[in-house]
Measured scan of single mutants.
Amino acid sequence: SSGGSSILDRAVIEHNLLSASKLYNNITFEELGALLEIPAAKAEKIASQMITEGRMNGFIDQIDGIVHFETR
C-alpha cells in the first residue's frame, strides 16, 4: 500500500507490540521500532494509541523516549 501500512500489517504490528509488552518491562522507541521493523516514531504512535484505547497497559515517557509496560 502506498499511504502507510495495510490493515494486516497494522494487525501484525499490534500483535508483536503486545508480545513485546509481555517480554519487556520497558523499551526505547528505537529498540521497539527495530523489533517491529518500523520507524521509531511510528512505534511510538501505535504504542500510544493502543495504551490510550486501553488495549495495552503502560505509559510513555516522551522525555526519555521509552515505553513502560505495566503487567495486568
Results as ranks from 00 to 15, higher is better:
62 Q>R: 14
9 D>I: 06
40 A>S: 07
64 D>F: 15
72 R>F: 14
25 N>R: 14
8 L>E: 10
26 N>V: 12
28 T>M: 02
2 S>T: 14
62 Q>C: 08
64 D>P: 06
35 L>K: 04
13 I>T: 04
53 E>R: 05
11 A>M: 11
8 L>G: 10
28 T>L: 03
32 L>D: 00
59 F>P: 00
23 L>N: 08
4 G>D: 12
18 L>M: 08
15 H>K: 14
64 D>S: 15
61 D>E: 05
38 I>D: 00
46 I>P: 00
22 K>S: 06
51 I>A: 02
28 T>R: 05
8 L>N: 11
67 V>G: 01
9 D>P: 08
69 F>A: 01
38 I>G: 00
13 I>C: 04
25 N>G: 08
7 I>R: 10
49 Q>N: 08
58 G>Q: 02
18 L>R: 06
37 E>F: 09
27 I>S: 02
40 A>H: 04
40 A>P: 12
16 N>W: 14
18 L>A: 05
68 H>G: 04
7 I>Y: 14
1 S>Y: 03
56 M>Y: 03
3 G>C: 13
63 I>Q: 10
10 R>I: 15
54 G>L: 05
25 N>H: 12
48 S>H: 12
28 T>K: 05
70 E>F: 14
50 M>T: 01
43 A>R: 01
42 K>S: 14
24 Y>I: 05
10 R>A: 08
10 R>G: 07
27 I>L: 14
30 E>R: 08
5 S>L: 08
47 A>D: 00
53 E>L: 06
24 Y>M: 06
62 Q>F: 14
1 S>Q: 11
25 N>S: 14
36 L>M: 04
38 I>R: 00
32 L>E: 00
61 D>L: 08
54 G>E: 04
24 Y>W: 07
21 S>W: 04
34 A>L: 12
3 G>Y: 04
4 G>R: 07
70 E>Y: 14
3 G>M: 10
69 F>R: 01
26 N>R: 14
19 S>T: 14
51 I>V: 05
69 F>E: 01
62 Q>E: 11
2 S>M: 09
7 I>D: 14
4 G>E: 14
26 N>L: 13
3 G>R: 08
9 D>M: 05
55 R>T: 06
46 I>T: 03
9 D>Y: 05
6 S>N: 11
27 I>T: 03
27 I>V: 07
5 S>C: 11
27 I>P: 01
48 S>Y: 12
38 I>F: 01
65 G>Y: 04
51 I>G: 00
21 S>T: 06
30 E>Q: 10
63 I>N: 09
18 L>Y: 06
29 F>P: 01
10 R>C: 09
52 T>A: 15
52 T>F: 13
33 G>E: 05
23 L>S: 07
26 N>F: 15
1 S>K: 09
23 L>A: 07
31 E>N: 07
6 S>T: 12
52 T>S: 14
20 A>V: 15
34 A>G: 06
12 V>L: 11
11 A>C: 11
60 I>Q: 01
19 S>W: 14
68 H>A: 04
11 A>Y: 09
29 F>M: 06
54 G>M: 05
16 N>G: 11
25 N>I: 11
21 S>C: 06
7 I>V: 13
67 V>L: 15
51 I>R: 01
27 I>G: 00
2 S>Y: 04
6 S>I: 12
53 E>A: 09
18 L>E: 04
28 T>P: 04
36 L>H: 00
66 I>D: 03
67 V>N: 01
